[in-house]
Design a binder for these strands. Sequence first.
DNA 1: ATAACTGCAAAACATTTGCATACAG
DNA 2: CTGTATGCAAATGTTTTGCAGTTAT
Lengths: 159, 159
Amino acid sequence: MKSSPLPKEQLEVVRSRYLDYLRERNLRQTQERLSVFEEVYDTSDHFDADELFLKLKQQHVAVSRATVYNTLELLVDCNLVVRHQFGNKQAKYERSYSFWQHDHLICEECHHLFEFCDPRIQSIREMVADIFQFDISRHSLNMYGQCKRENCEHRTQDA
Amino acid sequence: MKSSPLPKEQLEVVRSRYLDYLRERNLRQTQERLSVFEEVYDTSDHFDADELFLKLKQQHVAVSRATVYNTLELLVDCNLVVRHQFGNKQAKYERSYSFWQHDHLICEECHHLFEFCDPRIQSIREMVADIFQFDISRHSLNMYGQCKRENCEHRTQDA
DNA sequence: ATAACTGCAAAACATTTGCATACAG
DNA sequence: CTGTATGCAAATGTTTTGCAGTTAT
């Protein structure tokens, strides 16, 4: 879930996949693109474009918002990051290399995000692909509701 | 799916549910609120707030955009309309009385929307509710992909 | 050298808000 | 009457875009 920093060897694999992707498409390896990548992969949580921009600024990494958005798009394009749309809020991003395939449960009270996994969703994908004759490239499954536990540890902190 | 105009008796049931909802909460029955309702329930397809605004304007029904948004929120609140968030586009709405519970498949080429239904999603909801001790009030499941059929009837029209 | 990338600020876009006016109850 | 709803236009928040200047290759 929160798999924290990626083990060094894995991080290297991902980094070179990114660099290869840039090279193959004749996209430049700029300092900004590298900084954004490093920051994204140092984060295991969900974040939005502006949070990433501010985190970089705080670390005195000079990258503009426009570049943050552009680079995130590249990362999504090469499958190293996924973009989520929860409700009508701004897009959230999450690094996607070597994470377990999961969907999301969102608390409508405190907005905490939980992750879950169910193999049946894969079967549904296959069935839908078959019925509609589609190649399904991705899906998003979000459940919304409220936590029933009296002392949910998230309630106090965010609500 | 596209169940077209609701049969008269059903429409009346829905209308009075709406009127009751307004009455119970001491919300006024304004001409605008009624017009928006009638237009929404005359439409069986997915639409966005602005499309609805323009359709009303075209019929010389004077309603401002702000009121369209406000009224849609009321309709969502009393469960007569559902709001969908497909990708990072603007919200789409759909009347929700007496429709079959369905999820969506979106073609990334022509953006056509297909609807499907799978009972397993209900079991997943129950399992997630159980594991996380949540009351789940709604979910959204969207699949994205491309149609493999050579002559998909939607390709030409929208792509 | 030169085409691509960047930062900036402006634009775009959907949605919300503030306030003076209108009107349902 | 009275408070609520409306219309308008301005504000908001996020994301995109245009362009002049910068930089990787």
